[in-house]
Write a protein that binds this DNA or RNA. Structure first.
Lengths: 206, 206
DNA sequence: TAGATTGTTAATCGATTAACAATC
DNA sequence: TAGATTGTTAATCGATTAACAATC
C-alpha cells in the first residue's frame, strides 16, 4: 500500500488487468494468480503484484486472487463503478461507429450525446441518439454535466473543439483526430490515431 | 548515431514527431527546432534531440531542423516511404469506418481488403471495396502479400482471426477488439480499445 | 503440515534530463 | 563575429525484476 501519487504508467495497466479478469470471469473462472494473469497479457508476474500492491492487498498467499473481488477493486480504483456519460463530437463514420459501439456497456461508459456542425447531419438519428447542433455544444455539455468526450472531427477543427469542450467542463478527451492537442492542466487526454498505431509497427517490418 | 537496437519507446514517439512536422508543413513552415516541436507535442526538447540522434544527425546547430528533410528521414526510418496494403477484418460499424477513413492517405497505408464471415455482409460495397468472405482469408491475404491487418471483429473471435492472419503471413496487427491477444514472436501488435483509453483517464476524474 | 503464492525490499536496468562543447 | 541550437555525455530519476520472508 502507498499513499504517494501513483505513476501514470501503472494506472495505464490497470484497465488491461481488468479486461483480462473480466474475460476470465466470463469463462466461469473464480480465481487467478499473478503468473497466470501475466502470461495472458504479456506482463511479468512481479510487475502485476507490485502494481496492485500500490492500492492494497487484494490477494491471498498460496491461492492468488479471487477474480470477482479484484474486478470490484479495480473498478473502484479506476472510478468506473458509476457509468460516465460521454459526448461524441463529430458524426462522421468514426463518430457513427462509436455512437453505435456496444463495447462500452459494462465498462463504465455510456454515450449520451453526438454533435456535428454539418446541417445535413444535425437531427440525424444514430440508434437512440439524435445528432445535435455543435453550435450549442458548450451550453449543452455543461448543463448535462458531461466530463468525458470523444473527438472524431477533422484534424483542422480538433483544437478549437477541444477548447470548447474544456470550456464546457470536460475533463477527459479521447482524441481520434490525427493531431496533437494542447489542453489546460487538469484535463486528461488520450490519443487513438489509427495511423500512429500502424506507424509504430512498420519500423519493425521487413 | 547508434547501431544497437533502438528502444521501442523511442520508435513509438517518432510517429508523433512526424505528425506534428507534417502539420507544420501544411501551414507553410520551413524549419523548426527541438524546443518548438517539443512544446507543440508536450515532450522535452532534450528528449527529441536524443531520440533523433539515434538515427543520425538531422539538424543544424544554430538553426534547427529543416522540416521537409526531417519528414523524409522519419518516413524512411519508419518504413512508410512505400504505401502498405492493409486488410480490415470485421465489416461492422468500426470496420466500415476504417474502410472509409480518409486519414491513411499520405501516411503510408491503404486499405485494400475488408473481410467478414456474415453472409449478409459478404459482397457489400464499402466505397471502392467489396466485403470478402472471411472463410478464404488465409489464402487471399497470403496471395496478396499483405503484412498488416486491422482487427474489428467481436472479442470472442479475435484470437482465432489473429491466428489465421498470422498463418497468412501478417506481421502487424492493430487490434480494436477488447481483448488481449497472444501472437507468435516477430508479429507486432497494437491495441486501440476505446474503453481502455477512457478507463486510463477516469482514475483522475473527480 | 507442505506447497503455493502473495506483498515487499533491494538490486538492476533503462529512460529522461541537464548541461555544455561543438558548430552552423 | 555573436547568437542560437544541435548532438552527446554524465547525472538523475524512475520503472522493472529478482528474491524471499510472510502467510494462507
Amino acid at each position: 500500500m502507498n499513499t504517494n501519487p501513483i505513476p501514470d504508467i501503472i494506472i495505464g495497466r490497470l484497465p488491461i488487468y481488468l479486461r483480462a479478469l473480466r474475460y476470465m470471469q466470463e469463462t466461469g473462472q473464480q480465481t487467478t494468480n499473478s503468473q497466470e494473469l501475466g502470461e495472458r497479457i504479456g506482463i511479468s508476474a512481479a510487475q502485476i503484484r507490485k502494481d496492485l500492491s500500490q492500492f492494497g492487498e487484494f490477494g491471498k498467499q498460496g491461492t492468488g486472487y479471487r477474480i470477482s473481488f479484484l474486478v470490484d477493486k479495480l473498478r473502484e480504483i479506476l472510478n468506473i463503478e458509476k457509468v460516465w456519460e460521454v459526448a461524441v463530437v463529430g458524426a462522421g463514420d468514426m463518430g457513427h461507429a462509436l455512437a453505435r459501439y456496444q463495447g462500452f456497456a459494462n465498462r463504465g461508459f455510456h454515450i449520451t450525446m453526438v454533435f456535428d456542425n454539418d446541417p445535413a447531419k444535425i437531427g440525424e438519428q444514430i440508434g437512440d441518439l439524435t445528432v445535435l447542433d455543435a453550435s450549442n455544444i458548450v451550453k449543452t455539455v455543461r448543463n448535462a454535466g458531461i466530463k468525458i468526450a470523444m473527438l472524431t472531427v477533422p484534424a483542422a477543427a480538433a483544437q478549437a473543439v477541444a477548447n470548447l469542450l474544456i470550456e464546457a467542463g470536460v475533463k477527459a478527451i479521447l482524441n481520434y483526430a490525427p493531431i496533437s492537442l494542447s489542453v489546460t492542466p487538469g484535463v486528461r487526454l488520450q490519443y487513438l490515431d489509427p495511423s500512429i498505431g500502424l506507424q509504430r509497427m512498420t519500423y519493425y517490418l521487413e
